[in-house]
């Protein structure tokens, strides 16, 4: 699974991307976030307050109950501010 971080989430995570292999019980976005938090470090800090974070799976916005697994690309980022 490929994780991407953008903007201040990237800065807090201390990296723009990483390859991870979560345990089998991680089935959805909420489970992935819980696992990343338990792992600690920058990504855990970046995902501490989910009110400030948007999630996309395979480049589409999703809710926390969206399934994840295998070779999914999961991105975490703040509310967007383009235009």
């Amino acid at each position: 699974m490929r994780l991407l971080y953008f903007a201040w989430v990237r800065e807090k995570a201390g990296k723009g991307q990483e390859e991870v292999a979560p345990p089998a019980e991680v089935a959805d976005v909420a489970g992935l976030i819980a696992w990343l938090r338990s792992r600690g470090g920058g990504p855990a800090d970046a995902l501490a307050d989910l009110r400030l974070v948007r999630v996309a799976v395979n480049q589409e916005y999703v809710a926390l109950d969206h399934p994840v697994g295998g070779s999914d690309e999961v991105a975490f980022f703040p509310p967007v501010t383009g235009g």
Binding site: F6, A7, W8, A56, Y61, A75, F77, P78, P79, V80, T81, G82, G83
Partner: peptide
């Protein structure tokens, strides 16, 4: 809709340093 949906983020540099623009 572009402003609230397209994944772009602005960081502004002022005399006070760089900061991410809040939505």
């Amino acid at each position: 809709r572009l402003k609230t949906e397209a994944p772009f983020w602005k960081s502004e540099e002022t005399a006070g340093g760089a900061r991410w623009v809040a939505a």
